[in-house]
Amino acid sequence: MSTSQDALERNLAHVMGVEYISDLTRLTAGASRETWSFVARDQKLILQRERSGGVGRLRHEPALLRAAHGAGVPVPEVVIDGSRSDELERPFMVVRFIDGETIARRILRDGAFARARSTFVTDVADTLARLHSLPIEAVPGLDASDPLTMYEKLLRDLGQPHPAFELVIRWLREHRPPSARQSIVHGDLRLGNVLVDEGGLRAVLDWELAHVGDPMEDLGWLCVRAWRFGSQAPVAGIGSYKELFEAYEQASGVRPDADVVRWWEVFGTLRWGVICIMQMTAHMTGMTRSHELAAIGRRVCETEYDAFRLLEGRW
């Protein structure tokens, strides 16, 4: 065990107010945060900590999880809010561990999840309706800037030429939905960021891209082809648009406008394309050398293709 891990173990025990913690194990090292599991007082817990040089995305997350929990959204219970603490050097939070599956291809294909799949669209629509019903003041300080402007700027700053995306951005600008109601938006709700067990949806994870915006953004993102993981059905590879819209209307009283959701699906497709370029860039600049990230650069044309297919006959 490295000395930095020793130090983390000691500091974490102090933060938890216990003599010692055990089984500290690093699970993942994402682009913006580290995730660890550990045991304290016989309870399995999860530590999420910003990576060094992180951009402060953990800042609002504990408050967000608590507000979402209050609205009936299934989320991990926050045990310690360290978003403004320096006790572990960088912002962190400790949440209770929830057992279940997050790997998209297993959720889509394993027989064990047949029942979870059959209720997934309803579960997710209900969850989104609850989240979107929260007053935006429930979590102060969330980003409310225009996502199209943001991703357009990201694309420009990356410096890679994408004539296809320029055409898509023009379409998005010209067909922007009339200003919608604003709500708290999860921003990255899709397979991979939800925890499922045999009984159904257990928790919505990865809230770091939550912001204030048009709630239909969450519905459109859920339909982006990349999040079907090779399956056919448009909603998360599991359900149809009709099922999603009906379930969301049932849960929220608001009937989604298909054209608006499609606008957000086109935007989401562009957004995923830009993220692919960013991941490739992380490899090319030497930040994280990885043939996997390098290869993602060549997935950008998939998103160009998807956006063009979505816009066929609609330009």
Partner: peptide, 13 residues
């Protein structure tokens, strides 16, 4: 532009 997208896909995937 769509032709170039299809050419890129023919190599990438």
């Amino acid at each position: 532009v769509f032709e170039s997208i299809c050419d890129k896909l023919a190599v990438a995937n």
